[in-house]
């Protein structure tokens, strides 16, 4: 390995290498985005189950509460390994990307569900009483009152989580998914300078994450303002 980084730089960006970097960056975004979209859908259901006061739903309430609290207290790496080796032991032949997508979805479901629960808790219970007396069914109350009011509150922190999660998905490299970190590992095994490669990997993450983080901050300000206009 040569300490002459600059001469190595062009070799890192040959046509095929650029394709690899691009694919890796897209995979990184995909992992975070899929995780957050599934996390939003399932997380909403779990948050609603946790909020429910119905007796018939008590088991669902306890189970979803346990799921959220436990998953948020286990390292990403352990969850990932559980799914990776678990699939092998149970005889499922799954691609690393599939396993990583499942693991990221499970993890982000727990975190997003907690954000949504916080959003639902800010709703005034009195409005729900008004809805009940007007004979809204629980589902109608959710659809017409709770969800429309919770969405503008929870979208900015969910987006913020999505941006944070982009960085967490670096761990997917540990099961061999070709995302940015793994692309870096591949480049170093091809003999490129680790200094240069990891500087590039850091820069690429920054290029992906920073504009989105700025957008998130803007989103938060705008939604907060629009609620008070």
């Amino acid at each position: 390995m040569s300490p002459d980084f600059l001469s190595d730089l062009p070799k890192l960006f040959t046509f095929y290498n650029i394709l690899l970097w691009g694919e890796a960056a897209l995979t990184t975004l995909l992992l975070s985005a899929v995780g957050c979209i599934i996390g939003m859908i399932v997380g909403f259901v779990l948050a609603i189950a946790r909020q429910s006061r119905r007796r018939a739903l008590i088991p669902a309430r306890i189970l979803s509460g346990l799921f959220v609290e436990i998953v948020r207290r286990v390292p990403f790496l352990i969850t990932l390994m559980l799914f990776f080796f678990g699939a092998q032991v149970l005889g499922f032949d799954l691609a690393p990307l599939t396993i990583a997508l499942i693991a990221t979805s499970v993890i982000s479901t727990a975190f997003v569900s907690e954000i949504i629960r916080g959003g639902l808790e800010t709703l005034k219970p009195a409005q729900l009483e008004a809805a009940a007396v007007m004979n809204f069914t629980p589902l109608q109350t959710l659809r017409l009152v709770s969800i429309p009011q919770a969405l503008p509150i929870v979208i900015p922190p969910i987006f913020g989580y999505f941006v944070l999660f982009i960085k967490d998905t670096a761990l997917a490299s540990q099961v061999g998914v070709l995302e940015l970190t793994q692309a870096g590992k591949i480049m170093t095994t091809k003999g490129h300078s680790a200094f240069l490669v990891y500087a590039v990997v850091l820069a690429l993450y920054f290029i992906v994450s920073y504009p989105l983080a700025r957008l998130g901050g803007y989103l938060e300000n705008r939604l907060v303002l629009s609620r008070h206009s």
Binding site: T181, S193, Y198, V201
Partner: peptide, 23 residues
């Protein structure tokens, strides 16, 4: 703050562990 919160911790450690030896 902008640098460290917009790049993954894992890659930051990779850099320290694998890249710094080159210097």
């Amino acid at each position: 703050v902008t640098f460290f919160t917009n790049t993954p911790q894992l890659v930051q450690i990779y850099f320290i562990f694998f890249a710094l030896p080159e210097v």
